[in-house]
Design a binder for these strands. Structure first.
Lengths: 349, 349
DNA sequence: GTGAAAGCGCTAACAT
DNA sequence: ATGTTAGCGCTTTCAC
């Protein structure tokens, strides 16, 4: 805390380059921006001078006067950048925008509405060219005025209420229904759902999809017990215990999310019931095939989701102005054993 | 691709606010920047006008003339932002800088030297206040001139050659030595190391530490077979098979890294040897306690590493100018079973 | 306590 | 093919 701030910005300016090359400043500007109407020899001389001085244009100064104030940067607003699923999406987005020499700010919102509002403001103050948002707010209405002013937005992983924009989702409901149907067809009649807070849209959709599937598949009576709000390992364990100590104990469990699935596995292992109670989880994870039994999951494709989100955003930045598009990236059932444990009503083949 | 670019930047300027408030532009500037010498009533009038117009200062225009051209942004250069370990570091850094209203660009380098050089240039062009780098280059010499010009840099996870800066590391060698010592004390005499490419510093350190430990612990003869360059699942499986089909097959394996450990577990399971061959892995992961046997690991603390890196960088940005510091964040051995499988020379208690 | 003028590094618009 | 002038939105300097 002693030295006066050392500014790493005594860089050469366009004027310096112009002086050294013996040309006007506008000619340097032309060369730097690859504009036409500069003779080959002059251009070469300018480039030499720039190299010699180690000149790098100041993109912010340029943008001040330029009409399309593009920063070649986008903002990525995630629920939690440390989540493995989101980390893969982030990386896929990076790979996509990198082909256009764009970069990305990442911010985590922690399911907090106020954080989202502040993050959007922060990104706008930094003049990002567009925003990819995993929305956590109850309404995205606060975005509309920015969209009206021309800000491109893409929603990812969750749909948004109160604002319209391109959206990339997983087939939460359909895939979850599949899980329920498989349970019923294997003879399970008392099913359980364990999930995190219902304020999260994907959680609601997966629960609803599972309920739909159970209803559709219903051969006899099918009963589904729902335990949402299991936001940490202890709460999941408590939920599992409740499901298994009901009057009619559950024989199959659907976990709505990665970390929930892992916690359910832990709970079942501690009770020694991992081979008795069927389990299907939403989202895949490492080692799912190596625990006993292997865990049946609905595998999402976060890389595809991220890539598509970036492509849509870049299209909008390029001026594409059609109606909002909705893309659904399918998840698929990966059978590994835990989801294939038969239930009491199972008719042997 | 049809509509002309819609610029989301017809924002009100300081002049507009000044006009509405009936004051000079400099007075608005004073209010916006909380400078003294503005009467309470004038300040209030200005703030009202700003609110009414929804005014937001243009930070880039401001910085053009300002002496300390701080952007309140840092660059984070990782090997691969989708890696869970790095994702947690990233999030910890974000949490730390957020307390200062700073934001972060993240770029992935993919162990590619050229990508690192381009990423650094890109960040500098964007005038970041500092850089946190997980170095992938053989030499970081290219950074020195920027550091000399005052750019604060912190290295994370790996030390750098050819440049000096604050560095945050895990105790790779010591922790790895511990693994070897435990194997030997449990009666193992033929040990194996499986790791990724030796060009990565952490891989080299962990291997070297393990060899050190084996040597120090040596009661009889201890033989260590090394299999580096196992960069994907198939290569790991092949490496494991080689270790187990040697003249003197290995009875204990040390995996240098998360994904390697997971692949080794898979290979051992497929051979049905997971209860015969001891295994310790560097870095923890979900479900490590739920496979059979539970996996003994050297657990790192990526959140602490990230937090510390951010703190060091912020200190440097604040002008701290002491000699480069080295911080070691300890990893600790978490025993879960796989690392406690005894070897042939084990003396029963 | 307040404001007018100059200028940050660059691009736009118009010369030549 | 090249240069000149004004001005982007703000801060600095200096005068009142």
């Amino acid at each position: 805390m002693t030295k006066p701030i050392a500014p790493h910005n005594s860089r050469p300016t366009m004027r310096d380059v112009a002086a050294l090359a013996g040309v006007g400043i506008k000619t340097v500007s032309r060369v730097v921006n690859n504009e036409p109407n500069v003779s080959k020899t002059t251009a070469e001389r300018v480039r030499q001078a720039a190299d010699e001085l180690n000149y790098r244009p100041d993109r912010f100064a340029g943008n001040l006067r330029r009409l399309d104030r593009s920063t070649q940067a986008i903002g990525l607003l995630l629920a939690d950048a440390s989540d493995p699923f989101e980390a893969v999406m982030q990386r896929a987005i990076e790979s996509e925008i990198e082909t256009r020499d764009m970069v990305m700010f990442t911010m985590s919102l922690d399911e907090n509405e106020n954080r989202q509002m502040r993050a959007v403001e922060e990104m706008l103050d930094r003049r990002v060219d567009g925003l990819i948002i995993m929305p956590v707010a109850s309404s995205e209405g606060h975005l509309v005025r920015y969209q009206d002013a021309g800000l491109p937005v893409v929603f990812i992983d969750r749909s948004a209420k109160g604002a319209s924009a391109d959206t990339i989702l997983t087939n939460n409901r359909e895939a979850s229904a599949l899980a329920a149907e498989q349970f019923v067809s294997l003879g399970h009649r008392y099913l359980g759902v364990v999930g995190r807070s219902s304020t999260i849209e994907t959680e609601r959709d997966r629960k609803a999809g599972f309920l739909d599937g159970a209803e559709r598949a219903c051969e006899d009576i099918v009963d589904v017990a729902v335990e949402m709000g299991a936001d940490d390992e202890e709460l999941v364990e408590a939920a599992v215990r409740r499901l298994l100590s009901k009057e009619q104990p559950v024989t199959a469990i659907f976990a709505t999310q990665n970390s929930v699935t892992v916690a359910v596995i832990g709970a079942l292992h501690r009770m020694g019931l991992q081979h008795q109670v069927a389990l299907i989880g939403f989202d895949d994870f490492p080692l799912a095939d190596l625990v006993e039994p292997g865990i049946t999951v609905l595998r999402q494709d976060p890389a595809a989701i991220g890539r598509l989100a970036a492509i849509r955003l870049l299209d909008r930045i390029d001026g594409e102005d059609g109606a909002s598009r909705l893309d659904i990236v399918p998840s698929r059932l990966v059978r590994r054993g835990s989801g294939e444990i038969p239930g009491p009503a199972h008719k042997r083949a």
